[in-house]
Amino acid sequence: MRLLLLNGSPRGTAGNTAILLKHFTEGFLANNNNSAETGYLKRAIDHRKLAEKFTGASAVIIAFPLYADSMPGIVKDFIETLGRVRGKGPSPKIGFIVQSGFPEAVHSRYVEKYLEKLARRLDAPYLGTVIRGGVEGIQAMPPFMTRRLFMAFRSLGRHFGVTKEFHPIIVKKLAAKERLSMVKKAVFRACQSIGLTNMYWNMMLKKNGAFERRFDRPYQP
């Protein structure tokens, strides 16, 4: 199978989406009959060309970071381009990967409804939406913390390469908890009381000499 992967991160090749897609693609290409091409939605000037590729493809996966509870503006821009260039008739099979900063899957469930409807709007067979939270920070984590996540994306890709579907058990495992459990909330509060939940941001604030200004309100009326 020939697969078109569209990366909808405003950070393009430097983002977390790119890392997850890299592992997915590696798994997918384990089947020698498969080939994959990746396009980046970061720049609006590339959208027309990519929309034409979309129309000609047999299967497409659009992956993006959750941005203000939905798709980044550039992804919406691309969807609008699709609406303009698309002729009548069926579209390729389409699936989505949404990854977010907050750990719970619930944050991405609302845009998932949109994506499912989008597939119907495009007359495209819907392959589903893979949701993964807690992804901001993976680039600062040591390998032992991300190993299982990357392995899960590789198996997701490998299964996709054989069955042309997202494996439901892997999808469920990746989405993990819909909401924080009582235990997680207690752990969060304990970490919060000793300043652990803000460690990542404090580290960067200090590195930039901005720690003292972290509560600034430049637009206070």
Binding site: A68, G73, K76, E80, R121, T197, W201
Partner: peptide, 23 residues
């Protein structure tokens, strides 16, 4: 295409400086 314009969405996500990074 089933949602607000990309133009409005682009402005909405620029609201992030108005909140704080702490969780």
């Amino acid at each position: 295409m089933g949602f607000v314009s990309a133009l409005l969405k682009r402005a909405n996500e620029r609201f992030i400086p108005l909140i704080h990074p702490y969780l």
